[in-house]
Nucleic acid binder design. Sequence first.
DNA 1: GTCTATAGCTTGATAGAC
DNA 2: GTCTATCAAGCTATAGAC
Lengths: 236, 236
Amino acid sequence: MKKKTTDHRPAKERILDAAEQLFARRGFYGVSLRDITQAAGVDVALVSYHFGGKRELFTAVFERRAEVLNRERLELLEEVRRAALPAAPSLEAIANAFFEPLLERSARGGPGWKSYFALVAYVNNSPEFGPVMMTRHFDPLVERFIAVLREALPGCPAREVYWGYQFLTGALTLTFAETGRLDKLSGGLCRSSDLDSVRERLAPYVAAGFRALSARATAAASRTPVRAARKARRRS
Amino acid sequence: MKKKTTDHRPAKERILDAAEQLFARRGFYGVSLRDITQAAGVDVALVSYHFGGKRELFTAVFERRAEVLNRERLELLEEVRRAALPAAPSLEAIANAFFEPLLERSARGGPGWKSYFALVAYVNNSPEFGPVMMTRHFDPLVERFIAVLREALPGCPAREVYWGYQFLTGALTLTFAETGRLDKLSGGLCRSSDLDSVRERLAPYVAAGFRALSARATAAASRTPVRAARKARRRS
DNA sequence: GTCTATAGCTTGATAGAC
DNA sequence: GTCTATCAAGCTATAGAC
């Protein structure tokens, strides 16, 4: 059954859009190809024709927006870096470059982008898909951000920066999932969908977190003689 | 087909254990009742008999450990509160009470607990299950923690505390999901499963984040005349 | 490129013997 | 409480007409 409003965009894109929305809501296994093609108003067989199979469709959805997003984030990061020269940029500015493009797309990019971010939250938290797909599509970008974060945190051990990034990405993906739980919890005082609130708060939050990790590591090191510290570092 | 090692625990518990592990790995839809009962070494029909259906089994798995966990966390919170009287406890101590019982169970509670935390990460990030199940089973606890956090952050608007909690729970659930992505990203420098590292770092990180949010709100308020501030608060 | 038709499985659920 | 047997419905994938 076709959709009432005749959509003249190519079937391939209509499938991608419908799949994006449904995968974001119910995960890879919670959606059938029939659900997807029915929502897209196309025939089931077209998935095989255009993508090969369900799995390939899933990765195609994931890849589609990852490229453009990463390019934007990388450009913004380098811009922030250049603007701060010869000093390193502030942690706030770096964090901001990491998620401002996401906020922008989520707020004004249309509903497809909202679904996409919920999908990333799903993938990032999935033991099955997370390590493979996040690594493949986002690690080069993340490595670059971590390198710049380390410039902004002189003397801070790499390990601390990685842990700080882990906490950051958890906060980020849950926030972009916009599950609406915060709305219920706060009795309407906060809204998951209120991205301006996120924009104002996430950078200060994680920047302060990074500073605390850095300070903690420095304090721990000065409390311990050099040789013991090396050993402790290997242990933990 | 039964498991080789004859397990004499009741079938009901064996089903719960197997379901917990599989749901955590692949989500609600990624697992069939046949997968579960085969792993448990029992017959498929026993799921209907003991639980009613797949959905009811899912919520039974989620509920089983939530109760004991929340009791522990609440007791620890009140202990921390009493120890600090007449002052409010530190943000670090409050944050610690929030996740120390989780760390303890994850490290020494056996593999069932590890699966359980991955399952919570899945549910927390799911638009379908998150708002319903997290709200039902964890909100009373979270409300209590937020009340104590507010005592420790005098003058900080409630909204800031809710946002801080949102970032905290995102960082927490991703960390406990132990997807192994951090391991790959850091080239082995950090391990997702290294819970001692989490214990040392998460409290300072989120405590600093809360302080930054509080400071930001105070600064914003002092920059704005009272009437405009009220309006701005309503807007954002 | 798109559609019909269908093959070949797996799914959740249950009726009824023991 | 546990198991066998079975059901109707749903699934992915594909061969072949247009």
